[in-house]
């Protein structure tokens, strides 16, 4: 499905990750030996400088990167599975009333300001990255299931599905052996293409202070904290900005390479 699964690339990513972990561990040990000074610009001992209470900005940025990656790693499979189950169930039990209700509900849901609703729910359940992840899953599943449903309905019209039906194959068999494999690839791509959206929402929640709580950090929180020191302590936000850009560019390149692969498979 994805060039990321290529062995050479996988080795490259694993090696790079291990190197990063090793650097961070050594750096953390070195930093712990120093007395941290507040508002220190980038130096040899503090690569990204220090913040208003003397925390090392490099370590904060690495932690924020970790939080962003973990959030994606949890939300993406969860919405994939949730969307798949709901979408398939609605398509499988083709009760017209139920279907109409579901479609209208999802259409209504996707026209709502999902971010506002998510913030509203977050205030209700309390701040914290765990809650952010849970609410992200909750608000993103409906549109995901709608995608699966639409794909399934389109697949049902294909000649091979009609032929299988006429042979007398059971509905369950057709769903598991023909419809699911048919929609799987485009659904994988659609799920991966939502990575920027997830990251953006995560950034928004943390910017509002509803995600990771101090003393831990996140990109959103770092950007918000950096706003007050935009001109006096540029290092408090510049490195966060650079890492966010790199993360989005990386995600974009992954999504694009997958789209390209899929197009090659589909159109030759």
């Amino acid at each position: 499905m994805c060039s990321l699964y290529d062995k050479s690339r996988l080795k490259y990513f694993t090696g790079l990750s291990l190197l990063l972990v090793a650097i961070v561990l050594i750096y953390k040990y070195e930093v712990s030996l120093n007395n941290n000074v507040m508002f220190l610009p980038p130096t040899w001992h503090h690569w990204f400088g220090t913040d208003v209470i003397g925390n090392d900005v490099f370590l904060k940025a690495i932690y924020a990167l970790f939080v962003a990656v973990v959030t994606i790693a949890i939300v993406l499979p969860a919405i994939y599975i949730g969307g798949l189950i709901v979408g398939i169930l609605v398509s499988y039990f083709d009760n017209p009333k139920l279907r109409e209700f579901f479609l209208n509900l999802v259409h209504y849901w996707v026209t709502l300001p999902v971010l506002l609703i998510a913030v509203f729910l977050l205030i209700l359940v309390g701040a914290g990255q765990g809650n952010v992840i849970g609410i992200l899953i909750f608000v993103l599943i409906p549109s995901h299931s709608l995608y699966v449903y639409n794909q399934m309905e389109e697949a049902k019209k294909q000649d091979f599905v009609i032929a299988k039906r006429s042979y007398g194959f059971s509905k369950g068999y057709i769903f598991s052996h023909h419809l699911f494999p048919y929609v799987k690839n485009s659904f994988n791509t659609y799920t991966l293409s939502r990575m920027p959206e997830i990251l953006m929402m995560d950034l928004a929640f943390n910017f509002l202070g509803l995600g990771v709580q101090p003393p831990h950090s996140s990109f959103g929180r770092m950007l918000f904290d950096g706003l007050s020191f935009m001109f006096s302590a540029w290092w408090m936000w510049v490195f966060a900005v650079i890492l966010v850009i790199l993360l989005f560019v990386l995600i974009n390149s992954i999504v694009m390479s997958i789209l390209k692969k899929e197009e090659e498979v589909r159109y030759g």
Partner: peptide, 21 residues
């Protein structure tokens, strides 16, 4: 150049603010 449009608007705002200053 599509990747430029993927960059979150908060980042663009920060960069513009700094540039203007």
């Amino acid at each position: 150049s599509q990747f430029i449009f993927y960059i979150p608007m908060i980042v663009i705002s920060y960069l513009m603010l700094y540039f203007l200053s």
